[in-house]
Design a protein around this nucleic acid. Structure first.
Lengths: 109, 109
DNA sequence: TTTTTTTATCGTAAAATTGCGATTATAAAA
DNA sequence: TTTTATAATCGCAATTTTACGATAAAAAAA
């Protein structure tokens, strides 16, 4: 199949999974780290930073944009990418909540 | 290709991505939530809880086990699954650190 | 010992992911 | 207007993921 049964799960579960999936590739982690680290965030700078071709980087950017973690503003011929504060915070809380919900140590295993 | 260029990224980036990837599917989020919520954690209970076949659930469990987020103890004919405290905390910190590293709001876009 | 219960693995199919080069689109610059 | 620079998209190939039924494996129960 290769098709996730999205409709069988809750919105929370799907949202959480979508954020996690978007961060589930080293290149996308690297992109996000770079965007956090640098002031400028031109697409070209990201391409230079990563050991991947321009088209591949563009695809990774597209996936991060899809879940909203980053956004891109067109500036002349180039594009300025950066973290989307609002979504970033939402993702942060969603993931933090998941991890926080496990307080007490397991009573088995 | 379909092959991630793992060797081109840092261990931190690969580890983070591996944790995120493991949580990047609603079924695996549901599994983890179930393990947190319940006292018992028999594999069969998880299969009953999820809208997926036994073999598919087994595969998802395998992927969570692969990154260490959960572990399974054989108990007679069945298996008791639970969160692996140590790895869970490592993952929690790694992901929290990433999100925390973005303090100041972006100065562009 | 044979049966039953439980879980993992195998085989298969469809779809998604990863990656790249080539092309296209857009806007600034000449 | 033509050229240049930047980034997105297309087309392609290899691999991985998702999912399932069927089969194996392992241990308890009969």
């Amino acid at each position: 199949m290769g098709l996730t049964k999205t409709e069988e799960f809750t919105k929370t579960q799907n949202d959480l999974a979508a954020f996690a999936k978007a961060l589930g590739h080293p290149a996308r982690i690297a992109i996000v780290q770079f965007l956090i680290r640098t002031k400028s965030c031109m697409c070209g700078d990201i391409v230079d930073e990563l050991p991947l071709s321009q088209s591949t980087v563009s695809q990774h950017l597209k996936e991060l944009k899809k879940v909203g973690l980053i956004k891109g503003d067109i500036e002349g011929p180039s594009v300025c990418y950066c973290i989307d504060e609002k979504v970033w915070k939402r993702a942060r809380k969603a993931i933090a909540d998941l991890f926080a919900s496990h307080n007490e140590p397991s009573n088995c295993c």
